[in-house]
């Protein structure tokens, strides 16, 4: 058995990795491209939903389900697939890779779709539209049962079933950390490139933006595509980590509002700030949940609501007293300048 401490840290790192990926993607959209994506949950849920559907489809091609249905006979089927993965690890890698690619492609397409209003609408209208986008995915996920089991949700196969039981939890956490590290390197490389600098320089300047015209639109579309794909990866990793998808879990609070709080507290348009902000909030929330039980029963209401009060309150205080976050945005050297 793993000690409590190891489980605590491994879980913390896993959740941190998921949020880091999502926040990096949100920072690309909001911090760099200036697109207030209040529908961040859309990309995240998309990744999760793909993870909730595609592995069943792909394994259906490899093994005979014997008439079992992914949604109706969910638990039984997951057990069978897990048993198969334990014996054939290579299939898990293949299936996971394909699922990941598909999720990224769909996430990228959705990101591109959000570029359409993002280029045409002004800030407040855009915010409403994107928020609406995000709400839609939840409605579809909750009501279209064949997708991810509707309100009941689905369990999904554990892609790490081949790892011995006692190491599996830590292994899953490490995989997530690996992905997050990769995402961090990728994004900071991108934001330090001349393209990233261009994005920041025109973000707040409508006039320059208009004179740059088409080129800038193309860059914006690319950034939104990349961010959409990255957001989907975050959702996919989260779903595979918790080994299930429940549509109503993909709500505005957890997957849109919380990322906004994290990146604003950390510092917009600043990947280090995102790192700090994400870590801070993941730790705080984890600790709150950890010590929650102590308070339970002492209050005449569910403790979860204190979380709402705290998050909403902190966000407002930060906006008023520290609008540029812990690590404010700084002029950044691009790679080329550093060479010269």
């Amino acid at each position: 058995m793993l000690s409590h401490e190891i489980i605590f840290v491994a879980d913390l790192l896993a959740i941190f990795s998921v949020y880091l990926i999502i926040n990096l993607s949100l920072n690309l959209e909001f911090g760099y491209a200036g697109v207030p994506n209040f529908g961040k949950v859309l990309a995240v849920a998309t990744g999760a939903f793909v993870m909730g559907v595609l592995p069943f489809t792909l394994y259906g091609m490899i093994i005979d389900y014997g008439g079992l249905e992914p949604i109706d006979d969910n638990i039984q089927l997951v057990r069978e697939i897990n048993d198969y993965i334990a014996l054939h690890p290579e299939t898990a890698v293949g299936v996971f890779a394909i699922t990941l690619i598909v999720a990224m492609v769909i996430g990228g397409i959705l990101g591109l779709a959000s570029a359409y209003p993002a280029i045409r609408l002004r800030g407040d209208y855009l915010a409403m539209t994107l928020l609406g986008f995000g709400e839609m995915i939840r409605i579809i996920g909750m009501n279209y049962t064949p997708l991810v089991g509707g309100t009941l949700g689905v369990s999904i196969p554990d892609m790490l079933s081949f790892v011995p039981n006692e190491y599996r939890f830590v292994a899953a956490s490490l995989v997530l950390v690996g992905f997050a590290g990769l995402a961090y390197l990728l994004v900071s490389r991108f934001t330090k490139s001349p393209v990233g600098r261009l994005l920041r320089s025109v973000r707040d300047d409508e006039v320059t933006l208009q004179t740059l015209g088409r080129d800038h639109k193309k860059i914006k579309m690319k950034v939104l595509m990349l961010a959409g794909a990255l957001g989907a990866v975050g959702g996919l990793l989260y779903a595979s980590y918790v080994e299930g998808v429940v549509a109503f879990g993909y709500n505005r609070l957890n997957w849109t509002f919380l990322p906004f709080v994290m990146i604003i507290v950390g510092g917009l348009a600043n990947n280090k700030g995102v790192l700090v902000g994400t870590f801070l909030f993941v730790v705080i929330r984890k600790l709150v949940i950890y010590y929650n039980d102590a308070l339970d029963g002492m209050l005449p209401f569910d403790i979860i609501w204190l979380d709402y009060l705290a998050l909403g309150g902190v966000m407002i205080l930060v906006l008023i007293f520290r609008p540029h976050g812990i690590i404010p945005e700084r002029p950044q050297k691009t790679r080329q300048l550093e060479k010269g």
Binding site: L253, F257, F301, L309, G312, I316, L319
Partner: peptide, 19 residues
């Protein structure tokens, strides 16, 4: 956008209060 985020934050806060 900051104002919108503030109203979203207040919404979250109020959802907590109302619950």
């Amino acid at each position: 956008i900051s104002l919108i985020i503030a109203t979203l934050a207040f919404d979250i806060f109020m959802i907590g209060v109302l619950n």
